[in-house]
Amino acid sequence: MSELLVIIQIAGRRCALGAHDVKSVIELGSITPVPRTPDFVAGITALRSQSLTVIDCRSALGFDTAQWPTDDRAAVVACGGHSYALMVDGIEDITTAAGVPGQIPGGFGPEWSRIATGMIETMTGPALLIDLAALIAGPESPRGDIEVAA
């Protein structure tokens, strides 16, 4: 198991993303806010001719944004055919996984369990492996489609 991982900090915790999911790391320029979207959608920003949806990972987990300052660098990831820029506390390093993701007794806590695949040992210490799709789906899973459609 020598999968490459990108280590990031979200809300003060050490997390890992699969390196092949991370397309690039960009300096976040101006973000155009998107009114009437959930808080975790910070807005959209342009990367060359592409537009990226900026996800505030702190709010996507359901944490208070005031507590954790974010870096001006963001990780660009692709999920479900769309590109996102993940606003995180910081992007640390690229490292190699030293095992398979596993669970820990007691779990990770409700917010983290939702988005975590498991704990993974890396060359630079343990990190929480993130399930991208779950992270991007935001704190509240979609429900109430009836209202939207009607």
């Binding site: 155009t32 009437r36 959209i44 769309h82 996102y84 991007i136 935001g138 979609p142």
Partner: peptide, 22 residues
């Protein structure tokens, strides 16, 4: 647009202006 943004039901897509602003 990403599904999270589409869900608002207000937007059909995004586009970049001449100055690169989305």
């Amino acid at each position: 647009l990403a599904p999270a943004v589409m869900k608002s039901g207000l937007y059909a897509g995004s586009t970049l202006l001449d100055d690169g602003q989305p």
